[in-house]
């Protein structure tokens, strides 16, 4: 049977509930209705807060803190079809929590690696995110990333930017982390006008570029090594790589 859900975390938890209580046999989980359906039964799961909460309580009881975090993290890997493996993970955890550490089980090894991939992306973006200063002093960063890492970046920069208001804008997902005084939230962004930058912005960008150039040692020139550390994909919003 193919299950359809709305792509939200609550939606997924409701799905888990139905799989357990209606003993569904799942072959695939999708967010969008497939165009052609051949011989396959199809069921749409509606997000239900009560069901979701029930599953969440179960998870809190059966899984360690670290494993709960893994579940949330895997869910952020939204460009991978992660639902089936995550369902498997939850099944195994309810049945035999000790088994969750068994990396000779392919699904569990997959999950461990996917989480690693997410966290290494997060770590890279801690370094590669670039802020630009707007007219009113707000710092504004644009990102485009494989997985949804806005919550990680938001927490990280709250710790280091003190009282400075900032926005981290995930262009592809139309999401933004907004921090201003006591306000800290993730919003969906419908439309966004090109902002006006502060007068100093281009000056510091130029300084940064000349620092970047001056820090390279010519006799050790090795662009291949550079590219293995900063693949082209990350360079879109890094001003030092602008031509």
């Amino acid at each position: 049977m193919i299950l359809l859900y709305d792509g939200s975390f609550e939606g997924f938890l409701s799905l888990v509930y139905e799989v357990y209580y209606e003993k569904l046999h799942v072959n695939a989980i999708v967010k969008k209705m497939p165009e052609t359906l051949l011989f396959e039964r199809f069921h749409e799961v509606f997000t239900d807060e009560a069901k979701a909460r029930k599953v969440l309580e179960g998870i809190a009881k059966h899984f360690s803190k670290e494993q709960q975090r893994t579940i949330c993290n895997i869910f952020l890997c939204d460009t991978k079809a992660h639902e089936m493996t995550l369902l498997e993970y939850i099944r195994i955890g309810f049945k035999n929590p000790k088994e969750l550490r068994n990396i000779t089980n392919p699904s569990l090894f997959y999950i461990q690696n996917l989480e690693k991939e997410l966290l290494s992306l997060v770590h890279k973006m801690y370094g590669f995110t670039r802020f630009e200063e707007l007219e009113d002093g707000t710092l504004y960063a644009k990102i485009e990333t494989k997985f949804n890492i806005v919550p990680f970046l938001g927490d990280h920069f709250c710790k280091r930017l003190g009282n400075i208001p900032f926005i981290i804008h995930d262009i592809k997902r139309s999401l933004a982390f907004v921090k201003n005084d006591d306000l800290r939230e993730i919003r969906s962004i419908a439309s966004f006008d090109t902002p006006t930058y502060s007068e100093e912005e281009s000056h510091f960008k130029a300084l940064w570029k000349s620092f970047f150039k001056a820090a390279a040692i010519q006799s050790r020139y090795n662009p291949k090594l550079q590219q293995s550390w900063v693949p082209l994909l990350y360079r879109t919003y890094m001003s030092e790589f602008e031509v």
Partner: peptide, 19 residues
């Protein structure tokens, strides 16, 4: 306050010599 150290260290860019 401004700034905070990060236990594992963070690389912010890589120069053309790969450092």
């Amino acid at each position: 306050e401004l700034g905070c150290a990060h236990n594992s260290g963070i690389c912010h860019s890589f120069t053309s010599d790969g450092r």
